[in-house]
Structure formats: structure tokens, C-alpha cells
Design a protein around this nucleic acid. Structure first.
Length: 207
DNA sequence: GGGAAGATGTTCT
DNA sequence: GAACATCTTCCCT
């Protein structure tokens, strides 16, 4: 495949965090290492907000871990969790405001065999990157990329995904607070989403 | 310096 | 569906 992903411009990241979480769906997350290019379509995201959101890492102010959330938008915020896994976020909101979008699942598009090697076991396509820890493993993302500008190699976000699709909003996963907020977004009907909601709502329409 | 919780994945029942 | 591995970060003493 002659894939030449072009990075999204800085202006893309200037929208509010919920809008950004939705706008990131269908975009390409691209990762280049010495082993080659690996890329996938972002099919599931979650928004974490600075106001009225106790589940957000930035809810209690800036710490060493969450500092990238308070920096400029369009950067990587990577953290280690549960002793085993990394999670990849896109920073958002104006500088000084701690917000981010967690990327939860990818539809593998390029470098599938590379992803499979990194994941270690013989997996079908669906299970390569359908979870935040899985996609970090598949793309070899760790905290060395924390704060990285997502317009640049070796980790960037580009246009080139599907042209049209419906978006579903649902409760976020794995949190203990603010569980009721519908701040998870995914591409309706996509098989690479980590978990489908029992009721699939379209955001903003209330139905 | 210590303790508890955590934006998960895998395996087992 | 439930248990658990595993360890960093942060908050408290």
C-alpha cells in the first residue's frame, strides 16, 4: 500500500476537548521505528476534562505524571498503569488547562505483521489494538514519547481514514468516578472498538 | 518512607 | 464473569 500519511496541522488541535475526541475518530495514528511503519485508524477515544471531571488525571492539579496535560495541545501524554501497560493520550485544551483525549482502539492498517510480533502471540486482526494498553504495545509506545509533538516523526496523527461514519457516545471504561458521563466516542459498527455499548447513542442528539 | 489505588490485559472457571 | 499479575505515582505520615 502506498501510504503517505500527512500530519494534521496544529490548528486541528485547537478545538475543545470533546470535539477533538470526536474529530480524532477516523484519523490515522502512525508510528515509525527502525523496524518500519505501523499505523491504524483511530476508532475509539475518551475525553478527560478539566472541569467537573474527577476521573481526569488533572482533576487535582498538575503533578509530575500529568504535566503534559497542562502543556500545549497536540502532544503525547503517555503514562504507565497497572504495572504492565501504557496508555496513550492526545493533549488538548489551551496551555495551562489539564485536558486530554485517551486513544482506546485502532483498526490496524499498515505494519500488521510488525504489530503482531510486538504483541507476542498469534492474534487475529481485531485483537491487535482494541484496547489502550494493546495499541501502545502494538505501536511500541512508551513514556519515552511523553510530550512528543504529534505532528512529527516518529509518532504522528494524519488524515486518510474513512470519509464518512456515524459516531456513538457511551460511558468511559475502567474509571471509578464520573462513570455516568458519556465521554467515550467510537465509530458505530466498527469491529475494532474495545467494547460496544448496550445502547448506542448518537452524541448531542439525545436519542 | 509507606501504603493504596489505578483511564488494563490475560487467563481461568 | 471474576481473579490476578505487576509497579509507578501520589498522598500521607
Amino acid at each position: 500500500m502506498n501510504l503517505r500519511p500527512q500530519p494534521l496541522p496544529f490548528s486541528f488541535y485547537l478545538q475543545d476537548t470533546v470535539s477533538l475526541a470526536r474529530a480524532l475518530l477516523g484519523q490515522l495514528l502512525c508510528r515509525r521505528t527502525a523496524e518500519g511503519l505501523a499505523a491504524g485508524i483511530i476508532v475509539e477515544t475518551e475525553a478527560y476534562l478539566s472541569k467537573d471531571d474527577p476521573a481526569c488525571h488533572a482533576a487535582r492539579g498538575m503533578t509530575r505524571r500529568n504535566a503534559p496535560m497542562f502543556g500545549p495541545p497536540g502532544r503525547a501524554y503517555v503514562y504507565f498503569i497497572y504495572g504492565n501497560h501504557y496508555c496513550f493520550n492526545v493533549t488538548s485544551g489551551p496551555e495551562g488547562v489539564g485536558e486530554a483525549v485517551l486513544v482506546r482502539a485502532l483498526q490496524p492498517l499498515e505494519g500488521v505483521e510488525l504489530m503482531r510480533r510486538r504483541r507476542g502471540i498469534a492474534l487475529n486482526l481485531v485483537n491487535l489494538a482494541n484496547g489502550p494498553g494493546k495499541l501502545c504495545r502494538a505501536l511500541n509506545i512508551d513514556t519515552s514519547l511523553n510530550g512528543h509533538d504529534l505532528r512529527e516523526e516518529p509518532l504522528w496523527i494524519a488524515t486518510g481514514g474513512p470519509a464518512h461514519f456515524d459516531v456513538v457516545s457511551a460511558p468511559r471504561i475502567g474509571i471509578s468516578q464520573a462513570k455516568e458521563k458519556l465521554l467515550r466516542f467510537y465509530i458505530k459498527g466498527n469491529n475494532y472498538v474495545s467494547r460496544r455499548a448496550s445502547i448506542e447513542r448518537n452524541p448531542g442528539t439525545g436519542d
